[in-house]
Write a protein that binds this DNA or RNA. Structure first.
Length: 156
DNA sequence: GCCAACGTTGGC
DNA sequence: GCCAACGTTGGC
């Protein structure tokens, strides 16, 4: 099994929004980048774990943990002319964009981006590299362990 | 709102 | 297949 980091804009879907969804599950729609799509299509497996990351917001950082709850399937929003994610070049016959379902595992103590940056063991994390724009990135097991065991400890 | 970095598009 | 122009991302 693999680990991931998935970005969401909290104005769109925050960790608290996810918690109120039926079955605490949501389709990770709106990915319009081939590399991120291919991660979902080729490498994600049901049961993989991912950090739920808040981006493009006043306080960027990791807000919780989700698990991958489905295989990749066509993203409905690409067919909807009213959606901001509509893609006129896609078709039902040959869908261009996919999504997976993710399910909340837990809301964790918030780990600020600045804290991630200050953690030497995470220096090579994708999310911390300059101009990282991928909305889905792999996280290696060592990085996962550093974050969950060292940075998510509730303050005492 | 700025701007750097990167992906995509389309003319040639 | 090159590459300039353009759009988008996302932290600050």
């Amino acid at each position: 099994m693999r680990y991931w980091l998935m970005k969401s804009e909290p104005a769109d879907c925050s960790i608290d929004d996810l918690a109120t969804m039926p079955n605490q599950t949501v389709a990770w729609y709106g990915v319009r980048n081939y590399q991120a799509r291919n991660f979902m299509r080729d490498q994600m497996k049901i049961g993989d774990l991912a950090f739920f990351y808040h981006s493009s917001c006043p306080r960027p950082g990791i807000a919780g943990i989700v698990c991958i709850a489905s295989a990749a399937y066509p993203d409905d929003t690409q067919f909807d002319p009213k959606s901001r994610y509509f893609d006129p070049k896609s078709s039902q016959e040959e869908p261009r964009w996919l999504n997976v379902d993710v399910k909340l595992v837990e809301k964790t103590p918030f780990v600020d981006l600045s804290v991630l940056r200050d953690t030497e063991a995470l220096a090579s994390m994708r999310i911390l590299q300059k101009a990282n724009r991928l909305s889905i990135t792999p996280v290696d097991a060592e990085e996962w362990r550093t974050i969950t065991t060292r940075l998510m400890k509730p303050k005492t």
